[in-house]
């Protein structure tokens, strides 16, 4: 597990402290990267959807991946997690190359993702969803499965751990309900809780705020922050600028498949390249007259109107 908060403060290379004073340039090297991607490209027919030279994700912080629609964020996400194969390039997780490593192996190594359209298993109960997330279960091997005494103890431990997580995410009252009966926001919570069952070091959230009502948004924000406090690293794709500003320690901006800017949230949102990428139509107007909040709001509005086709 990465360093927890107490060491983050004393150690100048890990966590948030390591980001202080870094050059806000695309591809800048991080002092303690958990994930490094290099030379990743992915072509769909004539379209180069992803063309990332170099990008590093710092351990123990919350990193946001933003960009206008069609920037290739979700495709890049799929390439990082092994759900899609890159045409070229490699990525490494904790220094280990992930070339030709299957998506399930990537998850077992500690890099677990969620999905833009939540993938809870709606015909299983909430608890069964959670239990599925636990790794190394003896009862998942076919020869041991019929012999209950071989896995009953482990199942009890898994259930206890699942119940703790459900309590933390305030889903414990729903444990025995079918996951299909949950609301959209609760499904997001369940998916996040379930991914924690795998015991990840890096949690990859694909649009965690999409389709979540404002009340639940606040608690979801709190949960994402708590992942960082408990020592995990988070990389998330998001269109919700409030969320990006509120919780991210570092922002990576993509446009047209490339990383065009990086930096702390305050500075990156004022970056000329980012404004150009989001608001190409406003090139002719004087950029200094535009209020940043309005820009962000406009970008968000565009997102909302196009939600669903941003893959």
């Amino acid at each position: 597990m990465p360093a927890d908060d107490s060491t983050t403060d004393t150690n100048a290379t890990t966590g948030r402290a390591g980001l202080v004073g870094l050059a806000a340039e695309p591809g800048v090297a991080k002092p303690d990267p958990i994930l490094v991607a290099h030379g990743i490209t992915r072509q769909f027919g004539g379209l180069k959807a992803v063309d990332v030279d170099h990008v590093e994700v710092q351990r123990g912080v919350i990193t946001a991946l933003i960009g206008p629609n069609g920037a290739g964020k979700t495709t890049f996400f799929n390439l990082l997690t092994g759900f899609d194969a890159a045409d070229s390039g490699d990525r490494s997780f904790n220094g280990r190359s992930l070339k030709r490593v299957s998506a399930s192996k990537v998850a077992r190594l500690g890099m677990v993702r969620t999905f833009q359209l939540t993938k809870v298993l709606s015909k299983l109960t909430v608890m069964e969803n959670m239990r599925l997330g636990a790794t190394g279960q003896r009862g998942e091997q076919i020869w041991a499965a019929p012999l209950r005494f071989l896995w009953a103890d482990q199942e009890r431990e898994v259930t206890e751990r699942a119940m703790e997580l459900l309590k933390r995410f305030k889903l414990d009252a729903k444990a025995d309900d079918l996951a299909g009966s949950l609301s959209g926001g609760q499904r997001k919570l369940l998916e996040m809780a379930r991914s924690l069952m795998v015991g990840p070091e890096l949690v990859m959230l694909d649009e965690p705020m999409a389709g979540v009502n404002p009340a639940l948004k606040q608690s979801l924000l709190g949960h994402v922050k708590s992942l960082r406090e408990s020592g995990m690293s988070v990389l998330f794709v998001e269109h919700d600028m409030d969320m990006v500003r509120d919780i991210s320690d570092w922002v990576i901006v993509m446009a047209q498949g490339q990383v065009i800017a990086e930096g702390p949230p305050e500075s990156v949102m004022g970056d000329q390249r980012v404004i150009d990428a989001y608001l190409g139509a406003h090139h002719d107007t004087d950029i200094t007259e535009l209020d940043l909040d309005a820009l962000a709001a406009e970008a968000e509005a565009e997102t909302l109107s196009n939600r669903g086709d941003s893959a």
Binding site: F83, S102, F115, S195
Partner: peptide, 9 residues
């Protein structure tokens, strides 16, 4: 895909 994302082959 959900199962794959949880580390099962």
């Amino acid at each position: 895909d959900a199962v794959r994302s949880l580390g099962k082959n």
